[in-house]
Every structure is written in C-alpha cells, then in structure tokens.
Amino acid sequence: MSVTVRLPTIMRSHAGGQSEVKAEGATIGEVVNDLVRQFPGTATHLKAPDGGVHKFVNVYLNDEDVRYLQKLDTPVKEGDQVSILPAVAGG
C-alpha cells in the first residue's frame, strides 16, 4: 500500500525539504517504519525510546488521530493521507 505522508516543517530538512513524501505499509506502524527507513533523520523526531511514537507527535490518518483509531495497528488503504504533526497548544 502506498500512502502520502505530510511532514511538519520540523521534519522536512530530513526529507530533502519535501513537505509530502510517499511511504509503503499496510498499517500506520509499517508506514512510520518505512518513513524512517527512507529518511533516517526523521527517527529522532518520531520515535520514543520504547519504539512507539514520541509523546509530542500526533499521527493522523486522513486527518483523524490514530491514537483514537487502532494506534500503530490502524490499517491504511492505497492513496490514504497520513499527517505527522507536533503537539501544539492554543488559547
């Protein structure tokens, strides 16, 4: 499955300045692993020491936070859009 991954500004320098890249996988976890394989510099921004996603990073599948879907096991479909965003407050 090939999906589009939208990167936040903070990660773009690790992906040749691109704001969107392609990644492969059947689940969000596989997509994240493929992203890190292609662009190893993104690992420090994405991965927590326990192998999960960093607590200050939110991963969205078609604009829905995967923490409220099936987390890293959330299945993806061909053409889906994954967005990675750092946690930012408002108010």
Partner: peptide, 21 residues
C-alpha cells in the same frame, strides 16, 4: 478539533518543544 498548526509553525526547532497541556 484542531488546526494543523504544526505544518505551519516553522519555529519549532525540536520535537521536545512540542507540548501536551
């Protein structure tokens, strides 16, 4: 509901500057 602020804010230098209230 939230806006995709993280795609727009470019001054966030390190992911540890992210913030969960």
């Amino acid at each position: 509901i939230e806006p995709p602020v993280g795609e727009m804010v470019d001054g966030l230098k390190n992911i540890d500057a992210g913030f969960v209230p």
